[in-house]
Computed example of a mutant assay.
Amino acid sequence: MADWDDLKVFLAVARGESLSRAGRVLKLDAATVGRRVARLEEAFGARLFTRSPQGYVLTDEGARLVAPAEAIEAQMARAAEALAGPAEGISGQVRIGAPDGAANYLLPQVVARIVAANPGLEVQIVALPRVFSLTRREADMVIAVSKPEQGRVIATKITDYRLSLAASDAYLGSAPPLTSLADLPAHRVIGYIPDMIFDRELDYLADLGVEQPPVASNSVSVQLNLIRQGAGVGVVHDFALPAAPGVRRVLTRDFGLTRAFHLIRHADDRRVPRIERFAEVLVAGLRAEVARLERQSQGE
């Protein structure tokens, strides 16, 4: 019968799809990881991975083992926390995946307050404009703009947030008049690269009839910096505006969007106290920070 150490190696290889990546996570050399995988396959009498020059891919038998192995992983985490006894704060490591708008303009200050109150806590923020895989454990929790429609996950709505058209004072001072949406075709519009929009909720310019913005980036942070440099007009998170002096909202009576952030976690983490406590304080902190920054962006 397989032991937990071998199952831990199995999960690392399944998530990293290579012996070397799994080894870096486990702090083992690739040869040792390979031997452990072979031992596990022998114990189960089944081939768990297909080997190729591109890496290790789960076989049907291996895919069926993932859920039971993750259930054991969650049980081991709960056992470790139980043995550690009650703690004053949150400790251990938590990795958050987030779109770069939330990662740049919300998470730094929220996480700074959380870690200041919990010295034993280590937080990793993975800021990438894409969808994260909880199944592959790319993160312990993910901030997303769309609720997942399937999968064994826990989805908690964090808060609504607002987006507005915005431009720099320098741009507006030299550009044609912008008094209504009818004036927009005379202006350069900044937005997402259309074929790199990873979530339909991010297709902000569809409501404006703009299919191909002349200046574009897959990053909202880059878009905001382009707006700051006077490259044109774009859709901006209201909560990001306090970080962009010289940029202001325009056409506020004609255009505005509301979206929502959701915190997504693996269902097996529901009973992991460390993850539960961190999720609670993170959601509360993000709600308060979005409200504070939106008030500030509106001059309140």
Rank of each mutant, 00 (worst) to 15 (best):
L184T: 05
P68V: 01
L208V: 00
E289H: 02
I197K: 01
G16F: 02
S297W: 02
G285V: 00
A82P: 00
A30D: 15
G62E: 05
F10H: 11
P214C: 04
T32P: 11
I190P: 06
E88H: 12
A170D: 15
A82C: 00
F278E: 13
E280F: 01
E70K: 14
Q75P: 00
G23R: 01
S217P: 12
I90G: 03
F255C: 04
P99S: 07
E42M: 08
Q223C: 04
P194G: 08
I154T: 13
D160E: 15
L134G: 13
F239G: 02
L181G: 05
S180I: 03
V37L: 03
D203N: 11
D6G: 12
L65A: 12
V220S: 14
D6C: 01
P148F: 01
I264K: 02
R259E: 15
R287T: 06
E41D: 12
L286N: 03
Q93L: 10
G16Y: 03
S168K: 01
N225T: 15
V153I: 06
E280L: 03
A244G: 04
V37H: 01
A80S: 14
A117Y: 02
S217Y: 12
V37T: 08
P119D: 12
A69C: 07
A77V: 05
A166S: 11
R188V: 13
S168P: 11
I154D: 14
G97R: 04
E122W: 09
